[in-house]
């Protein structure tokens, strides 16, 4: 949009606003991002690569990928089911359900971890039963995955619900009246209309799943090589004053988030209505 003359800000206002914004973004966003890479490469590229190739780091990378590989499909199944039920049907209590789906976003990540400790921890509801049966959830991989699922829970659903509501039910009704069953209508008519929105939700869900710290930190137990995800590994290295190591793994996560942002930008061009709601 190009502002008209009558409503255009004077040049000095524009310059002032842009300088303030630039200064603010440099201090809050850009310098932190740059500093990660600078700290990682402080002693050259080799120590940075070594830190990433370290067995504990590789184990953390593996665990992070595993966590995302479980949490993201779970999120897709839930999100698609929730969106189908909410956006394509009418029922009592719909808006309550939508609020409940959004709930994990307003819960502190630490509380998200805590609730699973209270249920599955040694002193939790199922603690003694789990110990008797030699099942470990807390301070083990299942707890990490559960906590990750909790914090990423709303991502796909809240992306799809408004999108599918906006698209209405006409096309699905047409498909059904032409003889299609539910799955056919979903895969042949609905999916092509929501694919970019779905991908967008998956992208944000994945970024959060790989980057989650607070919730995972509470349930992980920080066992090196076993229950450390990448963000937890960063914390351990940092607390051991291995700054190059910490920032090297962090730089890897930075690259991941930059990739996320680039893909996100592309999706927003492909389907402008995605991401209409902030996260």
């Amino acid at each position: 949009m190009s502002p008209q003359n009558s409503t255009q800000d004077p040049l000095w206002v524009k310059a002032l606003v842009l300088s303030l914004v630039a200064a603010f973004l440099v201090l809050v966003l850009i310098l932190p991002l740059v500093s990660v890479f600078a700290e990682a490469l402080r002693r050259g590229i080799d120590p940075a690569l070594e830190a990433i190739a370290n067995p504990d780091a590789l184990a953390a990378i593996k665990l992070t990928l595993l966590t995302a590989a479980i949490a993201v499909p779970f999120n897709i199944v839930f999100g698609v089911c929730a969106a189908w039920a909410v956006a394509k049907h009418d029922f009592a209590g719909k808006s309550l359900l939508i609020s409940l789906i959004d709930l994990p976003f307003s819960v502190s990540p630490v509380v998200a971890g805590l609730i699973y400790v209270l249920i599955f921890g040694a002193h939790g509801w199922f603690g003694s039963w789990l110990i008797d049966h030699d099942i470990r959830i807390i301070f083990a991989v299942p707890g990490i995955i559960l906590a990750t699922i909790f914090v990423t829970f709303p991502f796909v659903a809240r992306e799809l619900i408004p999108l599918m509501q906006e698209q209405g039910v006409d096309e699905e009704e047409a498909a059904v009246s032409l003889g299609a069953n539910g799955l056919t209508a979903f895969f042949r008519v609905t999916t092509p209309n929501i694919r970019w929105g779905l991908l967008y939700g998956v992208l944000l869900c994945n970024a959060r799943a790989m980057g989650e710290f607070g919730a995972v930190s509470v349930v992980s137990g920080h066992i090196r090589g076993l229950t450390n995800t990448m963000p937890l590994h960063v914390e351990i290295l940092y607390n051991e004053y291995d700054f190059v190591g910490a920032f090297s793994v962090a730089a890897l996560l930075c690259l991941l988030s930059i990739l996320t942002l680039v893909l996100k930008g592309i999706l927003e061009v492909l389907q402008p209505q995605v991401g209409a709601r902030g996260h």
């Binding site: 966003l29 944000l204 980057g211 962090a250 996560l253 942002l261 996100k264 996260h279």
Partner: peptide, 9 residues
């Protein structure tokens, strides 16, 4: 970026 960057980083 704050949505995409892990908080620990």
């Amino acid at each position: 970026l704050p949505f995409a960057l892990p908080t620990a980083v």
